[in-house]
Design a protein around this nucleic acid. Sequence first.
DNA 1: CTGTTAGCGCCTTCAC
DNA 2: GTGAAGGCGCTAACAG
Lengths: 339, 339
Amino acid sequence: MQSKTATIEDVARLAGVSIATVSRALHHPAKVAEATRKKVLAAIDSTGFTANAMAQSLRLKSTRMILVIVPDIGNTFFASILRGLEAVAQQRGYGLLIGNSENDPAIEETYVSYLRSGKVDGLVLLSGRLPWPAGSIPANPPPMISVCEEIEMPGLPFIGIDNQAAARLATEHLIAAGHRRIAYVAGPARNILTRQRQDGYAAALAAAGIPLDPGLLLPGDFSIESGVRAAASMDGMEEPPTAFFCANDEMAIGVIMELTRRGLKVPEDVAVMGFDDIQFSSCTTPPLTTVRQPRREIGEEAMDVLLDLIETGTPPSLHRLLPVELVVRGSTGMPASAR
Amino acid sequence: MQSKTATIEDVARLAGVSIATVSRALHHPAKVAEATRKKVLAAIDSTGFTANAMAQSLRLKSTRMILVIVPDIGNTFFASILRGLEAVAQQRGYGLLIGNSENDPAIEETYVSYLRSGKVDGLVLLSGRLPWPAGSIPANPPPMISVCEEIEMPGLPFIGIDNQAAARLATEHLIAAGHRRIAYVAGPARNILTRQRQDGYAAALAAAGIPLDPGLLLPGDFSIESGVRAAASMDGMEEPPTAFFCANDEMAIGVIMELTRRGLKVPEDVAVMGFDDIQFSSCTTPPLTTVRQPRREIGEEAMDVLLDLIETGTPPSLHRLLPVELVVRGSTGMPASAR
DNA sequence: CTGTTAGCGCCTTCAC
DNA sequence: GTGAAGGCGCTAACAG
């Protein structure tokens, strides 16, 4: 009905009290007489009053908003994490601002202004990078947490999985199926996930007494296309791999596509293992064997830790690893005498 | 270096001017002497000052933030639209707040508080629903725009595609390939896209003189699983379809999976057509023929219209349809003497 | 060109 | 239990 938004003053006038009482009725109901509180609530109702969030934030020096920087909004891997983050944020009275960076550090840096200008109270980093130009980390860093891709910075809390152990688990599954020529399709070269997962791969080989052939370390960038290229690189090899362990599912999907295109059977001729268990992993032909991360839980935990940090100033030196699960589907063979 | 965030006053003091001059130097540089401006800028630099966004918003009554309500953050269909939205938002000096609703009207309603409390200046609706309980639309609606899924409300601008024409195009492609028993796998029953695409399907059949068999109208809900179920429903039919036209790609993927599981060849035995052209459509076996929407452009246009509306109060009665493209891949056969 | 001043809407001491 | 008043940080008149 009202054409302009009602302010606290409108409510006060209508209820016949002062604005202080209105504010109290809302935030400290116990300090207000039952009768006046009722009047205030009625006035609020009939004016359709909603407190101006900007005025509140200015006064309270807190926006109850969290910014999460996600490197690629189109990557379904992040969806469940975002759901987890949002669920607890909302439950604890915070809003979630999702900032897409398209993997561009420059864009990530622009989001810092959200913090500096006080638009958000904290930061969730999914990008594996600090959103500051190298070497210019602020003296008193704002509340933030690194998720999935660990950022190595003292005092910065982290929630994710043990990538090395998980990759080792995956590789061991391939070894148990009889494979000895196992290619590793890597992610972007400097990416920490790439390194950790490769370490796990190497550890599994070492434990099985299989020498690591550097020629089987294939470059990739987490994209489907790079998986296609990795599979295509079999061409030049005199002793091609009988299995591919890919650092993520997208690349595994690319590998399967290219293998199939070449008339190779998966898993009979070549086995393929992914990582992450994104939604479409179960839709490939054959469906993809992969490692599942508890993404929602990771998101929930991360937000809880961050909000604790914001609200209570908890010492943030936390590093929590959540358990993974090997999801065996059709793209890796049964334990057999492969080759 | 500074432990507390610098305010405009700190800058003023350091530069030896008044706070008004600092503000002017920032927003109306022309109205400030070159020399003083330099001093101010230097002071800003050495204090590390960033204007408090809350104070600005309170004063300016604008946050330069747009909220977009997306029904499912995990649906890659929305990713490109979000990219388009964000690109022009950022370019025009606005921030984008992404609100995931998990297709839950109740959650969508919670986002309205962002508007009412002044946290955002406008709203992009990707959900096909107004975020208000039925019948309680506010008297003076806030700036908003409906995208892709048209919301039928007078004066509410819309950007999307001509779903009926696009569905007709898709169906005609199937007809041209010789199909006459074409199933339509629908989305959620009350969804407008479902209806529009079904209308296009029906129109194509009618134009070709093919009677519409209601038994070929299969229920679905846009999920992969519902596609699987639709394909499985061939069981009960004495005259099963030779082609499936699915209201979206996810369902088409499900159909292909189930068809393949049953030993049916796509497209030799049964053809499958999708809608949307999501990323994984080109990764199925065989790759999916589908209809591509210009998603990024839709997002860009939508944001431009919304911001025009916000900034200039442009009469918002706009209804723009962007062109689609039939993407022919392997899941539909060549024009043949199919049955 | 520059400084002074009046709020934006709200929360919270501090008196009563 | 309630009201008056100050101030969060900033911008835009309005004077000079």
